[in-house]
Amino acid sequence: MSLFARNALIALAITIAIIATVLYAVNFLNQQRVAELRTIEDQLATDTLSIETQFALLEEAPCEDISAGTTLSQEVGGIGDKLAYAEEHAGADDPDVLRLKERYTLLQIRDYLLTKRLSETCGVKPTVALYFYSNVPGECDNCDRAGYALSYLRQTYPTLRVYSFDYHLDLAALRTLISVLKVEPNFPAFVIQGKRTYGFSTLEELEKAFPKSLFATSTSSTTKPR
């Protein structure tokens, strides 16, 4: 075999080895990301239990002991971003990502319900926005913009509590919530202080849907809009 032929074959083997290593490394990193998400599962479970407990306490404890509202842990607060990133890199169909997304959605629903109960029982009036989006291509051209605008509002007005939901997530509790709130599959969909609105044009238009009191308050918030 000539020097050229020998080198050409060795080079081909090296190239295949490099590409295989890169594929393995990227896949490994994505798996590590999912593993990182799994470590947050425990925290999700703790937070869910915490909310359940607060629900139970509400039956017996005076409002003033709880009226400060719920505060999800810091670890859970960042899971929304991490889930979005993992979806993008490991794929929205990844079973681990899907499972975590479902648990996170459940936690959001529980937190929303507790906030609502606090509002009714104790007169706490946080501004609550539910945001429903769709990841189905072509179904929601303005969801990116709406999500970004909500991120801005949430950061600027910390009393705003935003819960974001993938409308098509196959989760019974979410289906029930959608049914109870009578949210139509027109995206983006918002339920702000109990009122449904659809579509997104500008930040100014969206702000009109919020009570004016929001823009003059400042306390802590919970989940991030996605």
């Binding site: 929304g80 971003d81 889930l83 979005a84 990133y85 979806e87 993008e88 890199h89 929205a92 997304k101 989006y133 990841n135 969801c143 990116d144 999500g147 970004y148 991120s151 974001s164 993938d166 809009p225 996605r226």
Partner: peptide
């Protein structure tokens, strides 16, 4: 989950 992160989407 709706992405709001300002990075280039994979194409």
């Amino acid at each position: 989950m709706q992405n709001t992160v300002l990075d280039a989407p994979p194409n």
